[in-house]
Each structure stands twice: as structure tokens, then as C-alpha cells.
Simulated scan of single mutants.
Amino acid sequence: MQNTPNLPIILLDAPGAQRAALWGLQDLFALVPRLDPTCTPLDVRVLAPDALPQAPVAAFVFAPSIEGTRPVPDHPLVAWAVQQHAQGALACSVCAGAFWLGQAGLLSQRPATTHWALEEEFRQCFPDVRLAPEHILVDDHDVITAGGLMAWTDLGLHLTGRWYGAEMVSRLARHLLVDPGGREQRAYSTFAPPRQHGDAAVLLAQRHMDQQFGTALTVPVLATVAGLSERSFVRRFTAATGTPPASYLQALRVEKARGALERSQASIAQIAWDVGYRDVPAFARAFRSITGLTPGAYRSRFRTPMS
């Protein structure tokens, strides 16, 4: 089933950006409707900083830098990225592109990756990021980071899976003669709720849930964050996201748990606690209801080699 965005995807021609990544990603996405004419084409644009739209976009990508260029805090692209992410855009980076997301504050307290050779520099610049340079790609729900210079292919295939499904990933990888990789070739049933629904109060609650998913997030708490009455909050949240708050929170917690099971050595009980479950059997039931697997079986199947 397709889940293609109807807003533009912006590939950012930032200072020093690797042209191969920018044009390669644009070509990669353009191949999808050629392989299957029933697939909805994406509106993918390579844009310089002085040509960026102020209207909301579906996603944006910071490419690798081949010149060692690093962003400064007051660069217009930093403010633009913050604004777009706040409006619901999916934020992505490849290699040194992660420095732009870091400068924008979009990786704070999040897991992320970049090129292994940049690890020391990145940690010094952004010590509050949970950097995992051993991973080729880290999907943290509304922020995705990829590793080395050529990891734009991994990001492209991963986004293809998110928007078109696993079968298209296989077809595209075969056509390009690239290895999709075990982790990127898994079932792409990731939790990707709508964020560009236009309800600012609901988006505030979604952002709060993204950051505080491990705490007690009751309807009264979320309604207060949104500045709404409880009844109005539940009604507007369900209308905007297509999911009631309790079901949304469960799906979000399971998505966070999936990432932890893939990337960390923490026990299942610890992961359950970290994502907000104080009862491990209840966590296991919720996890299986969404993924079809127990947490242990999921870890055995999808754990990355260096976890």
C-alpha cells in the first residue's frame, strides 16, 4: 500500500553539498513510477538556500559535504529546518549532513548516526546526541540519519520503503544492482502518523509525545499541553491523526521499542520501562499486537550485527 506524501521533498543544496547524493536521490525516486506506473510520483526538488519554500514540505534531506563545510548557528538553512520540522516535515541527513540537523537542535537527546570518521568531531559539537556511528541508518520516527558518503542509497531505499512498501524496495534495489541490506529490507510497517494536518494544538501534543513517550501521558496531561479541554483534545487529535490518543501512544512506544531492540543491548524489561510500560507482559502484548512478533523474536530477527 502506498503512503506517498503529497507535498514536496526538498534535497538541500547546502554549502559544500555532495552533488552525487542530491542528483542520485532525485534519480532514485524518479525510477519508482518507471518501474511501476501505478505508483504516485514524488515531487522531489534540489534547491539552493535562496530558493526554499516557506510553505510546508513533506521531507527534507541534508546531503554529505565533500568540502568539510560545517553550518553556523545563524545560517538561514538552520532556521528553515527548524520551522519545517515544527510544521511536520520529516528531517533527514546523510553523513556530515547530520551537522545541520544537530545545529538545528533536531537531534537533541535522540539516537543518530553519521560517518564513523566524524564521530569525535560530532560528539564534541553535539554531546547531547545519542550518536551510534556503527549503524548505517537510524530511523527515529520523524528524524532519519544515514552514515557514510554513499549512504544516500540506504536512505533512498529506506524512504522508498516508507512511502511505497517493501516490494518496491526489492524491485528498485534489483534494478539499481545495489544490496538493500537486511535491516532496510525488513517489513516497513513503521509508525508514521500525519503531522501536516494543520492543527497546531494537536501538533504540540504530538511533539510532546515524541519527547516524553516514556512518561505517564494521560489525556489530561496532553490536553493541557495542547491548550484544549479534554473532550476537544480527544476529538481534534483523533480527527487530525486518524488515531485516538491512547492507540497513538501505544504505536509510538512500540516504534521506539523496535529501534531499541534493533540497536541496543538493553534487556527487554529495561526497554519496556524506557518506553513507558511498567508491566513487561503488558508491553509484550502491545508489541505483538502491532508487530506480530514477541519482543524477543523481533530482536532475534532484526538486531543489527554491531548491537
Rank of each mutant, 00 (worst) to 15 (best):
N3S: 13
T4E: 11
L7D: 15
L7P: 13
A21E: 15
L25C: 03
D27E: 12
D27S: 13
L31T: 02
L31C: 06
P37Q: 12
T40E: 12
V44Q: 07
R45F: 00
L52Q: 14
P53N: 10
Q54Y: 00
A58N: 15
F62D: 04
A63N: 03
R70K: 12
V72R: 14
P76C: 11
P76K: 13
W80Y: 11
A81R: 10
A81E: 03
V82K: 15
V82P: 06
Q83K: 04
Q83C: 01
H85I: 01
A89Q: 03
A91P: 07
C92T: 14
C95Q: 01
C95N: 04
A96I: 07
L101D: 03
G102L: 05
S108K: 15
R110L: 15
A112C: 05
T114D: 00
A117L: 13
A117I: 01
A117E: 10
A117V: 12
L118H: 02
C125R: 12
C125K: 08
F126M: 14
A132K: 13
P133A: 06
D139M: 10
G147Q: 11
M150D: 10
W152R: 11
D154V: 14
G156F: 12
L157A: 08
T160G: 07
G161I: 13
G165S: 12
M168Y: 01
S170L: 03
A173H: 02
R174G: 11
H175S: 09
P180T: 00
P180Y: 00
R183D: 12
E184H: 08
Q185F: 06
R186N: 09
A187H: 04
Y188I: 05
S189D: 09
T190D: 09
T190P: 00
F191T: 10
F191W: 14
A192C: 08
R195E: 04
A200K: 15
A201G: 06
V202P: 06
A205W: 10
R207G: 05
M209A: 14
D210T: 09
Q211N: 06
G214F: 12
T218A: 07
T218R: 13
T224H: 07
G227Y: 08
S229P: 08
E230F: 01
F233Y: 10
F233Q: 10
V234Y: 06
V234A: 11
V234K: 14
R235Y: 12
T238E: 11
A239N: 08
A239P: 01
P245W: 05
S247H: 14
A251Q: 15
A251Y: 04
E255Y: 05
K256T: 01
A257G: 09
G259F: 04
S267D: 09
A269G: 14
I271M: 12
G276K: 05
R278N: 07
P281H: 04
P281S: 04
F287M: 08
F287N: 03
S289Y: 02
P295Q: 05
P295M: 06
A297H: 05
R301H: 08
R303L: 02
P305E: 02
